[in-house]
Design a protein around this nucleic acid. Structure first.
Lengths: 234, 234
DNA sequence: GATGTGGGTTAGAACTTCTCACGAACACGA
DNA sequence: TCGTGTTCGTGAGAAGTTCTAACCCACATC
């Protein structure tokens, strides 16, 4: 490919207003990219990320193979872009829920709803990673924002009962290792509960999305609600 | 990833004694199959299951491409076989731990140790699944055995304090939906705690193996221990 | 209107899984 | 000891994949 100078920084460069992009070329480019991503999501939802084929997307769009490389430098770059969009989507729905006054339970249900919309999308960001892969920095930034939204909700929770000695010791550990929380002013108990909430929600959600409850005759929603209850009363 | 054919019933048919296979041919075949699987595990550990290449394995073994199809009908069958072996391995280490008198905490640490030995191996059975895939029946049987071992440990736990109304209601739900536990005679509270233990352990373990704690500055072992403590005291 | 950039094409290299037809080595029974 | 038949390994090849290279053409801008 030609020079392309910089990371290509999304077609809607530093231009004018919000959305579409300025020049007709930019608008066209953005639209084609969006269409490519649409087909990619379709493929991922039905056959998994490993089955994503640029060639198949091109064919389905009526153009021939290498044309897609004008829009994405490689298959990996497309997938990275999809991961970015997935993170953004989760952050947005979580932000919207928080903006509507959702508490911890509301946020948890928002996460589950978003995940059930497209299981492979959730698993694309929280499922099996490719060993070598490292997400770009902006993606970890979005992930940090998600954690911040969760932390807000947990910090707003009533102070809860007394804690076990182990919990206290773990909280003091977290008080000294809170870089993951950025500069969030949450108290150590909130840090601990947010972390546990994250891992537990992910635990049952991940097993649900992977179909491990399917043959067990258990309603995942019941299990999810039970974990949520334990999280709030424990 | 498509059909996954049938279980293929292992070449060491209904022959004689236990292990190696009787005739020299059978022994040779079993040894080649094992070597193939060894290289496959190596590839999976370093590049993930989606990067597994039969051709590369054949080349590394000094034979040419299609020869491997004498031993595995397809790439999918090889992967299924690896999944089966992974399940068996986990069941074995869990059984060994239980046989050595490990309690719930011991079993949990055994699971984590086994997972950390080869993260991709754990993620092969509990990570992102291929949408169409259904494991053969014998595999779900092994998975049921794993749950049985866990249930044994949870059933041996002291009865614990009183439970919240929600927990009681969830336990009565489980009492009516206990087919996943087979005919295990565990009490409903043990069912509930075993289920929660499974999902929580998987939650922190899966996020650890996927590297989500790496950039957060948190020691996964601490978090794992904290969850384990909450599981036992809660 | 010339010029240059960006979009699209075909050709092709280097892979992949997997089928087929052939040859050779082996085990076994006559 | 000599067939006979099963099994193993081969090379060829079909149908995919990602991705590069060269070329054309249309559009935009100067």
């Amino acid at each position: 490919m030609a020079k392309m100078t910089e990371p290509e920084q999304e077609p809607e460069q530093r231009s004018g207003p919000g959305a579409g992009g300025r020049t007709p070329r930019e608008r066209y480019r953005a639209q084609v990219r969006a269409e490519i991503k649409g087909h990619a999501w379709e493929q991922i939802a039905t056959a998994g990320a490993s089955a994503l084929s640029l060639n198949a997307i091109a064919k389905r769009m009526g153009m021939s193979g290498p044309a897609l490389y004008r829009y994405f430098a490689s298959r990996d770059e497309l997938i990275t872009e999809l991961i970015r969009d997935a993170y953004r989507g989760l952050a947005d729905t979580l932000g919207a829920a928080a903006g509507s006054g959702a508490d911890v339970a509301g946020l948890a249900q928002a996460i589950r709803g978003w995940a059930l919309e497209d299981p492979q999308r959730y698993l694309l960001i929280y499922g099996t990673p490719v060993p070598g892969y490292h997400a770009p920095d902006d993606i970890t930034g979005i992930a940090r924002g998600i954690m911040a939204t969760l932390l807000d909700a947990y910090a707003a929770l009533p102070a809860g009962e007394e804690r076990t000695p182990f919990e206290r010791s773990f909280e003091s550990y977290l008080a000294e290792h809170r870089q993951w929380a950025g500069d969030h002013p949450a108290e150590p108990p909130a840090l601990r509960r947010a972390l546990a909430g994250w891992t537990r929600i992910h635990g049952v959600l991940s097993l649900e999305l992977s179909g491990h409850f399917a043959g067990m005759g258990i309603d995942p929603a019941q299990l999810f609600a039970a974990e949520l209850d334990a999280l709030l009363t424990g």
